[in-house]
Structure formats: C-alpha cells, structure tokens
Design a protein around this nucleic acid. Sequence first.
DNA 1: AGTATCTCCTGCGTGC
DNA 2: TGCACGCAGGAGATAC
Length: 273
Amino acid sequence: MPELPEVETTCRGIRPHVEGHTVSNVIVRNGRLRWPVDEGLAEIVGGRVLRAVSRRAKYLLLRFDVGILLVHLGMSGSLRVVNPSAAVGKHDHIDVLFNNDLALRFNDPRRFGAFVWHGDATTLDEHPLIAHLGPEPLSNGFTGDYLYGLARNKKTPLKSFIMDAKMVVGVGNIYANEALFAAGLHPLKVAGKLTRPKAARLVVQIKAILAHAIERGGTTLRDFVGGDGKPGYFAQELNVYGHGGKPCPRCSKPLTEKRLQNRTTVYCSACQK
DNA sequence: AGTATCTCCTGCGTGC
DNA sequence: TGCACGCAGGAGATAC
C-alpha cells in the first residue's frame, strides 16, 4: 500500500520519462475514483507540456502552465510508465499519453485513489487537499520541538497523533508502527504526555525509517509496484508490522497486536513505554 | 474546539 | 472446489 516512500519512489521513477514532454491525450476508462475524474481533463491538458513532477505528502503533482494535476495512489494505486500499446489490465483506469510515445498508466483495484485537477498553478497551497497539511517528515521544519509543541494537551493516542496529516504528513500505518517501536514508545501513550526528549527520539526515528524506506524503493505489500515496474525491498525489514504474536526482535517477548481506531497496531509491551 | 467513527473499494486469506 | 466472510487501509466527511 503506497505510503510516502512508495509515492516518492513513483515520483522519481516516472519523472525522467515524462517531464518536459507534451500530453497528447488522456484516456479515462473508469473515472469513478475517490472523486469523479474531471471529464474535460483531456481537453485541458492535451497539447500542454508537463513542466514538473513532484510530490507533496502522498500527492503526486503534475505541473502544467495552466494548473496542477494532483494524483493520489490511495490504497492500491500505481502509476507506471508504459508503452501505450501495452495490453490494458482490468484496473488500468487512466492513461496519460505523451508525444514521446509513452504513457502514464494509472492502475487502482480499490479505487481509493484520485485524479484531481487544480486549474491554477500558483495557488496550490490554498487547495483544500493541501492547505491543512503539516510539514514533510524529512524537512527541516519537522523537529522534536515542533512535535513536542503540538502534542501539548492532546489526549489522542500517540500513534493516531503521528498519523494525523495536520501534524506531519506521510506517516501511514506501517511506518507509524515501525517508528514507535524503533523509538521505544507505546502507541497508546497519550500524546500530551510526551516529553521533549521522547518527541525528539520519535522524530529521529520517523525520519530514519522513511529515509531508509525511500532508499530501498518503498515497501512491497500486495499490489504496490514502483514507477518502473520493479518492486520495493523494504517489506522484509519490518520489525513489528505484520508480526503480531511473534517474538519481539529486541527482547523476544511476543508482540502485542490490537486494533486502534480500526488500524492494526503492533507493539512490544515490554520495550515500548 | 478536539476526537472518534464512518465511508469509499476489490482482492486475498481463512474457515466451513 | 466453492462460497461467505473479514480484513487490508488513506484520508476526507461526518458525528459526537
């Protein structure tokens, strides 16, 4: 499932193939994604040069002179560079065709993904999907002091707190579990009880794990495939996620698995306080 | 206001 | 071998 490292991997994978090239057409086979895909998309971006491919949180940003296409991979989406004549699969919902005879092909079995057109390239920060977002986890703005400050008086569990995009973006369920384990912090701990040193520790681990996962090309679970079609190699390095009941890698006590706000949460009750 | 729950969707693993 | 069922989960929408 695409978390931030997978989106970053996709961004880097597709960029060299499509940046600077002109869109020749957009084929929407199934526009019923999270929100209906704009039916005029082909007319809007057809003939336009894709100026830049970037990422904000888990959104891929395809920037044109006349606006920005926000692409979210949702739970099961992938965006790959393909030959447009390649056989169309069951869940290949959208092709963005380029004049260099390549296409970006969006595949998304669960259709939690999104293609959202924002018709003004200069006001992205005001877009409702972007405006409320916290800092990028790997940016200099995401520090222990920052997280400590936000956590004051928060009653929400620590895991929910770091998964809240208003606090910091890009920390999905898998990496939240892993970062809390690495930092030795209990996922159910009340966020407001976080001390300054513990916040610093947590931030260090979130950065380390995300950076490492990006280096490895993202986590491969079920249906994620990177921009170039090669899978990521991080899944085998997960310490707790998917290992409920198995021995803790640090102390060998069985890892606890429970649901927290409908998300699988795995931790070591001995190592994480 | 801050928190918690609901919702979208399909494929896969499990149990009978 | 087949079928029903539960689970996976990003994040906006909705409800408390």
